[in-house]
Simulated assay, not measured.
Amino acid sequence: MNTKENKQSSEEISRKDAIKKMGKYAVLTAVGTFILLSPQKAQATSAPPPPGW
């Protein structure tokens, strides 16, 4: 198969669009990591354990 045929058949995006997409993923990853790695806030918002634990 010719490489030109592969490029034409696949969806192409510009470098600017690719950077925007990666920026969105980076923000989501940072927010998720911040939430998971902040145990004091997570502990403060969690429900108390049931009696007998």
Rank of each mutant, 00 (worst) to 15 (best):
S14L: 00
L36C: 09
V31H: 01
I19C: 04
M22E: 14
E12M: 15
G32Q: 03
T3D: 07
D17T: 07
A47C: 05
L37D: 00
G32V: 01
G23Y: 04
W53Q: 10
V31K: 04
P50T: 02
K7M: 15
T45Q: 14
Q40V: 11
M22I: 12
P39N: 04
K20I: 14
K16L: 13
S14M: 06
D17E: 15
P49R: 11
A18N: 03
L37E: 12
V27R: 09
N6H: 07
I13N: 03
W53R: 10
P48Y: 03
N6P: 01
G32L: 12
D17G: 04
P48K: 07
A42I: 00
K24D: 14
P49M: 06
A30I: 08
R15A: 14
I35K: 07
S10I: 07
T33L: 15
A26I: 05
A44L: 04
I19H: 08
T33H: 02
L28M: 14
R15S: 11
L37R: 02
M1C: 03
E5I: 04
T3L: 11
M22D: 06
A47T: 08
A30E: 02
Y25T: 14
T33S: 01
P50F: 08
A26F: 06
S10Q: 15
Q40E: 11
E11L: 13
L36Y: 08
W53S: 12
A47D: 10
G23L: 12
S9L: 14
Q8G: 03
G32D: 05
K16H: 11
V27F: 10
S46C: 03
P48A: 10
N2L: 07
K21R: 15
R15C: 09
K4T: 06
P48M: 06
R15G: 01
E12H: 06
A42E: 02
S9M: 12
K20E: 03
S9I: 14
A26T: 12
